[in-house]
């Protein structure tokens, strides 16, 4: 079963990098982001949250869940025609960049970016707690 799990983690890493490429494309396709683009971001992060849970990577599960919640939170705060502000856009981009740097080794990444990840998630949580939607 351990070999199966290793194989699943590898699959998750490949899946993760492909999705991060799509998310990067979304981020670069139209700055600032629209409701539709935030929905797409939420979908990608939410799927990775499920994948991380499936392969028993709790830190990544928490990270992707937080990013999915943030994307949904930003989207719900927008009215038609509004777009998110630069600080929120930068938070999302920082999270994406962090995952993309992991490459094929998510466990190594978790060790290396632990502090950076905590700082980002804390910043996101503070923004949500302040009710800062844009």
């Amino acid at each position: 079963m351990e070999r199966v799990l290793d194989s699943l983690v590898h699959t998750f890493c490949v899946d993760c990098q492909q999705r991060m490429q799509r998310v990067t494309d979304i981020m670069q396709s139209g700055v600032p982001l629209s409701c539709t683009q935030l929905d797409q971001l939420h979908q990608e992060f939410d799927t990775l949250f499920g994948g991380a849970r499936a392969v028993h990577l709790p830190e990544m599960e928490f990270f992707f869940r937080s990013m999915a919640i943030y994307a949904r939170y930003l989207r719900n705060g927008l009215r038609d025609g509004q777009t998110i502000a630069q600080p929120a856009w930068q938070d999302l981009l920082a999270g994406i960049a962090m995952v993309r740097r992991c490459g094929d080794d998510m466990s190594l990444c978790l060790e290396h970016c632990n502090k950076h990840r905590s700082t980002l998630l804390q910043a996101i949580e503070n923004r949500i707690n302040k009710g800062d939607t844009r």
Partner: peptide, 12 residues
């Protein structure tokens, strides 16, 4: 399922 991980998990 669009998730490669989920499909592989199901198969496993």
């Amino acid at each position: 399922d669009d998730s490669m991980t989920s499909r592989m998990l199901f198969k496993a």
